[in-house]
Design a protein around this nucleic acid. Structure first.
Length: 596
RNA sequence: GGGGGCGUAGCUCAACUGGUUAGAGUACCAGCCUGUCACGCUGGUUGUUGCGGGUUCGAGUCCCGUCGCUCUCGCCA
């Protein structure tokens, strides 16, 4: 009755509809749930497309052949699709109007007792989920995330090719780079004592492809960095949409990426439409207004500078800070004057936990000001605060005073914490922005040395002239980030393609010419043979999927993620290797004994 | 590398200040049930309380060590 090609199925479970009524079909899948009524058994059978109800009559010989219908057993059923009676339609199921009356049954794969439930929303520790990732991937949420990931990546590819980019592959075994994160190293058998490194990003390769003349490059590139995990940072490896373009300015890159993001997000977003262009915020403005270089623009709170107001104040905590070169920052929050004392106390505590000396505040209520600090302030200072912040009755203004860098961090953390506690973040939208004009250099607080603040390959704004004439700390780079809802999706830059400017930039950061030639010789040498101006960006694919899947943890959008200690609990990686393998690689182990 | 938290049944969790036979839900097993859809009902099994040591008449509980997991800071040009 069934052809050879229909050995296991004629149709997917979730695809059966009223159109198939009276047809004889064959389906294969996992036992999702069993409802045994003694006289009749219902089984929900699941495949990647969904569920369908199988009805088993007690007269069937296979009714008793099974000792148990253990959940997650893989079974093939053949039978007739019938319409359900009106009362027994299940509106919760896509296939709820029909069911299959089984004629034949074949067990394809038995299941032992599963460590956690697939059908029910069974909580269980992440270690167990990771160890049995293949089971976790059967669950609705994770399955949908991974399918969404596939769809997004395919859409990104399509769009990138549409707008004129070519996809490339670059080496996975490459050389270690001196800057950046720790490398993953791979020992070389043919060259004892030497190591390959897995690329932290295909940075130099994509720039070399520009020098080669390919003009528009992209790659869904795996990147390897040996750094510790965070909620939005999977250890080990992650994927970037790596992009590079020739003969472009920063604006050209922005508009190409805006076209991509608008297309992909509007196709897969469940949170309304996004529009280009995205807001551009200079780095310094972002640090002032949001206290971070990855602002969540869904948060309506904005930080303001009020240092001038308190410069000569009698409130020494503020005036002293300003006189020592620090700043005072104000954060107005509307309509929270009636919050209890405990709310303000716990905010002060929170600010202190973030390293603040304190958190001053003024409550404006019923035409009066209530505050631990108001008695130190003159009428003029108070009215300046009012006019700068535009405070209304019922509002509260918080103050942070510290060195600029600390004040930014603390005010930024307080801004986020207040928004979370007050639940004033609109979770139902995506807010993109570009952060532009990053400083080229910064001062290493410990060593006192000027260092690159971001990518050493970025072109300084003003080129050689600015490098020669300006204080290095005042030089900006053509360096930018794209941020969405407080998540840094990517950094990018217009690259420095002129060898002499690159030598100079490295010289300022304390590297002499010989070191540059040694470490970046491949690329800088290439720039001596006709290099086009070029630049690029590399948005994190995992983070894009995370945003569109609305997941707070990056491991929920990766099929087989490492745990926090960079281990694969299912495959037992990393693991020891044989003595013979080590010998071939000329490696002797010298594992330090744990202190104590 | 630093700091916090956790470790009890296959899984999730409970067990007062150290006190009787370590419980519940779910899963699993057996039985009943012909229209359920997280089916229902009855009964049952499941434990080296992570591991090792100590204090005590008595330790899941307190102490020390160790292992594992987790969050966080450092780190992520």
């Amino acid at each position: 009755m069934f052809k050879e090609s229909q050995r296991y199925r004629t149709i997917y479970c979730g695809k059966i509809s009223k159109n198939d009524i009276d047809k004889t079909v064959k389906v294969s899948g996992w036992v999702h749930s069993v409802r045994d009524h003694g006289g009749i058994i219902f089984i929900d059978l699941r495949d990647k497309t969904g569920l369908v109800q199988i009805v088993i009559d007690p007269k069937r010989d296979f009714y008793k052949t099974l000792e148990h219908w253990r959940l997650e057993t893989v079974i093939c059923f053949a039978g007739k699709v019938v319409e359900r009676s009106v009362e027994s339609v299940n509106p919760k199921l896509a296939t709820g109007e029909i069911e299959i009356v089984a004629d034949e049954m074949e067990i394809l794969g038995e299941a032992e007792i599963i460590p956690f439930q697939i059908a029910k929303d069974d909580k269980c520790s992440e270690a167990i989920r990771l160890k049995h990732r293949f089971l976790d991937l059967r669950r609705e949420k994770l399955k949908n995330n991974i399918l969404l990931r596939g769809a997004i990546i395919s859409e990104i590819r399509k769009k990138m090719i549409d707008i004129g980019f070519t996809e490339f592959q670059t080496p996975i075994l490459t050389s270690s780079s001196p800057e950046g994160a720790r490398d993953y190293l791979v020992p070389s058998r043919l060259h004892p004592g030497k190591f390959y490194a897995l690329p932290q990003a295909p940075q130099q390769f994509k720039q070399l492809l520009m020098v080669a003349g390919f003009d528009k490059y992209f790659q869904i590139a795996p990147c390897f960095r040996d750094e510790d995990a965070r909620a939005d940072r999977s250890p080990g490896e992650f994927y970037q949409l790596d992009v590079e373009m020739s003969f472009v300015t920063q604006e050209d890159i922005f508009s190409a990426m805006e076209e991509l993001f608008v297309h992909v997000f509007n196709k897969y977003s469940k949170k309304g439409v996004i529009e280009a262009p995205f807001i551009r915020i200079p780095y310094e403005e972002s640090m002032l207004k949001y206290g971070t270089d990855k602002p969540d623009l869904r948060n309506p709170l904005i930080i303001q500078d009020v240092s001038e107001v308190f410069k000569n104040s009698k409130f020494n905590a503020f005036s002293g800070t300003v006189k020592k070169g620090g700043v005072v920052r104000a954060l107005k929050v509307e309509n929270i004057a009636d919050k209890p004392r405990s709310f303000f106390d716990s905010m002060v505590k929170y600010a202190q936990s973030e390293g603040s000396k304190g958190l001053a505040y003024i409550i404006f209520q019923n035409g009066k000001e209530r505050s631990p600090i108001v008695k130190f302030l003159s009428d003029k200072e108070l009215s300046s605060v009012k006019s700068i912040t535009g405070v209304k009755d019922g509002d509260v203004v918080f103050f942070v005073a510290d060195k600029e860098k600390n004040a930014n961090n603390i005010a930024g953390a307080v801004r986020t914490e207040l928004a979370n506690r007050l639940d004033i973040i609109n979770k139902d939208c995506y807010k993109f922005c570009w952060i532009t004009d990053f400083p080229m250099f910064e001062k290493d607080e410990d060593a006192g040395q000027v260092i690159f603040s971001h990518n050493p390959f970025s072109m300084p704004q003003g080129g050689m002239k600015d490098l020669l004439e300006k204080n290095p700390l005042d030089v900006y780079a053509y360096q930018y980030d794209i941020v969405c809802n407080g998540v840094e999706l990517s950094s990018g830059a217009i690259r420095n393609h002129k060898p002499e400017i690159m030598y100079k930039a490295f010289e300022i950061a304390g590297y002499d010419k010989r070191v540059v030639n040694e470490k970046f010789g491949g690329m800088i040498n290439a720039f001596k043979y006709g290099a086009p101006p070029h630049g690029g960006i590399a948005p994190g694919v995992d983070r894009i999927v995370m945003l569109l899947a609305d997941e707070p943890n990056i491991r929920e959008v990766i099929a087989f993620p490492f745990n926090q200690q960079a281990q694969d609990l299912m495959m037992s990686a990393p693991n020891s290797v044989s003595e013979r393998q080590l010998k071939e690689l000329s490696i002797k182990l010298d594992i330090p004994k744990k202190s104590k």
